[in-house]
Amino acid sequence: MPFTNEQLERYSRHIILKEVGIKGQKKLLNAKVLIIGAGGLGAPAALYLAAAGVGTIGIADADEVDLSNLQRQVIHTTADLGKAKVKSAAETMTAINPDVKVNTYRTFVTSQNIMNLIAGYDFILDGTDNFPAKFLINDACVMAKKPFSHAGIIRFRGQLMTYVPGQGPCYRCVFKNPPPKDAVPTCKQAGVIGAMGGVIGSLQAMEAIKYIIGQGKLLTGRLLTYDALKMEFHTIKLPRDEHCAVCSAYPTITKLIDYEQAECDMKK
């Protein structure tokens, strides 16, 4: 379908880029991205992906908007308090860009539902806060051969990496297994500066967009870390683990695992 005049104007700053153009913008409009977690990372990612004209955006989250979320989860407003996060996020995305079809999933991701959730999407964005979910998303994406962006944020630091099937290590190559409960602090325990979600979530959106338009170098085989206090970005080369339990030629994990959630991560 040809672009309408309104779309030509809306996406003009994209279309003028040689790396995007009409072709790239069409790819964005035809793309389907699933965001798991409508929180600190998912909120800014969702805003930029909707504004960019990613045609179908899925958003999965079981929570409601809480006052303590608003310091960083910029897709929700004070008027949304108590509302399902997926509903609040969908309303904001649609208000920004009516071109976008938003699918909402008001649920936690589990081994039971994740394969169905990710099946219809081209790229997955992990915006979850806890390690059981991060490992589950990794394993499911490896098994379903779906590319995804992993990220984590805490205090004044953040990091992200991108997995593309067959093109580099997965999250489990690097981190093996979830840490025991409460061994590693969560944002709720340790705090996080609100703008960190904006920095790292926007970088995740950038990876999704680059993947969709097929331009540039993704963070495959690299972990990008950001230290806001030192104001330093650093890239760490990541090898593949030839014995990785999930992405190697002979995986020992062939079924999805629901790791126990740390109590502090459970629904308040």
Partner: peptide
């Protein structure tokens, strides 16, 4: 030498 840290964060 590089150190890689577990980092959660995101929602909640």
């Amino acid at each position: 030498v590089e150190f890689l840290y577990f980092m959660g964060g995101g929602t909640v």
